[in-house]
Design a protein around this nucleic acid. Structure first.
Lengths: 201, 201
DNA sequence: CCTACCGATCGGTAGG
DNA sequence: CCTACCGATCGGTAGG
């Protein structure tokens, strides 16, 4: 006799997949993708290893979902930021959007940046192209700002690298819920825009 | 009859070990430590897998040498920088020293930051303590600069994270010999100290 | 979602 | 520095 309602079954099944995904994100960040076994994922999710495969096609399937899901979130944020008019407003909005994504998903963000190299073809190349495009769009904003005389004549590629590296560094050092996103955003923007040195006049 | 001079034997033996170490650094960066097998290392070094063990105690032994070797280089550079008098001179020198180490060993630097989590105890804890100390000393310089009224009142922990993240990001994007270290150093210091925005007056 | 299982590969050792 | 080899663990499948 099965007294279990179908709705609950669906709900349980759905949250089980979520649980595996969540634990995978945590373990991939902590130990790395390659060092995390399917058995590790199963144990943390409270099931046996082969059961993972009723929710995901493969171990890499999970990594793919983390990487492309995060990349999409970053892309969407940047697209909105690019609608601003001036280069400095664009860059401010882009930084804000990036921080929002990182703080809301610090584990997944760290996994994306550190583990995407483990993707196999054609996903590896697809992802590489995506992330390269993201960096290019950041660089373009900075380039236009320099041309417009708003930003100093620094190497745009180097400035972009410094900015994105520091923004992504947050993912590894962020303790969820510990910091105010607003404060984070204003401090980072202030430092990158105006520096840490006090003006004398 | 062995006509091979002893000196050449030593030299060959020495450079073989160096070759393994060099290839390990490249592969650990490219694929990650866990995804690189001892057989991969052997193949790239032109020997059979078990021969690795006549030069290194274990696969982790190589990682340990990369991590602690780099950490020592960073520490030494920082110690010299701390001898400067003012906080801003200290920070400038610390940035310069850090960049010098990263640019001279970009692969090993990337491996250190990305792969040290694969160290086992007691090395894991030892390394963690070391690198924590490094960050603390950077943070202290910034803290003193704020107290002295030279730096703005930003959160020192956040400012340190941003700085070190961007400096380490260089390791992953640096193409050896492509950039001038001096230019790199002045651009980075300028951006972190004074920002990217042009002053209006 | 489980039990039972598989071929491949892993880090490392023995012995020379 | 090599050949021969080992136990452990890997990602994943069959079948229910």
């Amino acid at each position: 006799m099965n007294t279990e309602p179908a709705v609950d079954k669906m709900k349980n099944s759905f949250s089980r997949k979520d649980e595996i995904f969540k634990q995978a994100t945590i373990l991939f960040k902590k130990r790395g993708y390659t060092a995390t076994s399917v058995r590790d994922l199963a144990q943390e999710s409270g099931i046996e290893a082969p059961s993972i495969y009723s929710h995901f096609k493969s171990k890499e399937d999970i990594l793919q979902q983390i990487c492309f899901g995060m990349a999409k979130a970053f892309m969407t944020g940047l697209s909105k930021a690019e609608k601003k008019k001036s280069p400095d407003d664009k860059l401010k909005a882009a930084i804000k959007a990036h921080i929002k994504v990182v703080t809301a998903n610090s584990d997944a963000s760290a996994v994306m940046w550190n583990e995407w190299k483990n993707l196999t073809e054609p996903y590896f190349d697809d992802f590489k192209t995506m992330i390269h495009g993201y960096e290019t769009r950041f660089r373009k904003i900075i380039k236009k700002g320099i041309k417009a005389g708003i930003f100093k004549k620094n190497d745009p590629a180097l400035a972009t690298t410094l900015l994105l590296s520091s923004l992504n560094g947050l993912a590894f050092r962020l303790h969820p819920g510990k910091r105010q996103v607003k404060e984070l955003n204003s401090t980072i923007t202030n430092i990158f825009f105006k520096g840490i040195v006090k003006r004398k006049n």
